[in-house]
Amino acid sequence: MGELGTNHLLGIKNISKDDIQLIFETADHFKEVINRPIKKVPSLRDVTIANLFFENSTRTRLSFELAEKRLSADVVNFSAASSSVKKGETLIDTVNNILAMKVDMVVMRHPNPGAGVFLSKHVNASIVNAGDGAHEHPTQALLDAYSIREKLGDVKGKNIVIVGDILHSRVALSNIFCLQKLGAKVKVCGPNTLMPKHIRSLGVEVEFDLKKALEWCDVANMLRVQNERMSTRYFPSTREYVAQYGLDKEKLNQLSKEIVIMHPGPINRGVEISSDVADSNHSIILHQVENGVAIRMAVLYLLASKMKHYKN
């Protein structure tokens, strides 16, 4: 204990429970740091980090950038929309050119699954996956589990249901790995058309009835319907989706207990979750966002501590 077992954070699947616990303990300290009058520490002042976003993002990108700046790292930003990628440059060329400018770490979001893994094998820098296609989004899973731990005391033994568009969701996959490693029971819930074919092989149960799923769970993580990734229609109409899988006050009030509501953002208000639920005190959505900065500071700090720049 004390050091991460990995030089990159590419996904939750390949990191250990000890790594997750270490990230959480470190994040506890950074959460205290970001609530100080002066929220900055000098740890990473000689580290340069490139944020490469080949896909749109608001929260994750801002959160990483804030985390980097609060650790005093130098930050360069890159987004595919305004870059030479449009001129046909390959991923390795883009990244190697950026590394030639002496960058130590790369935070990357990419539409293709496995882009982070591919990069980690070809370039000499620490890689943090900020979402790769429908594959993994490890920091989101870490901050979700961290928020559950903060709200309920522990993740172990808790029942967590992930609701909605499981098929297109990297958040769902990383969450399943993370929560299971920490000893939680996980169910997924959503229309059959939005269930990956082999989801049960991960050891999760599939529930098609939202009411039953909510009655079973301690925490419901409501995922966004990812219209931009849908090439065909997966359900008859938005209205029908809302009726069956949208979470509103009425469905919550029918439950015999109180549950915690989460959402990784961005919210389609009135689709997967109604406004009154999203803004209610059951919801820890904004805590997730705050914890996101602390978790990302912890990840970057722990990865940087393995670089040992100055060792002979």
């Binding site: 004390g2 300290h29 205290e32 740091v33 000098p42 740890s43 940087a304 501590s305 040992k308 060792k311």
Partner: peptide, 27 residues
């Protein structure tokens, strides 16, 4: 006061710097 994140030997040795609790609830 915990000084872990302010130390000048980060990334310079084998010893991992483990943080402790800071507890200053006054200005």
């Amino acid at each position: 006061l915990d000084i872990t994140f302010f130390r000048d030997d980060f990334m310079r040795g084998n010893k991992v710097l483990k943080a402790n609790k800071t507890d200053i609830n006054f200005i």
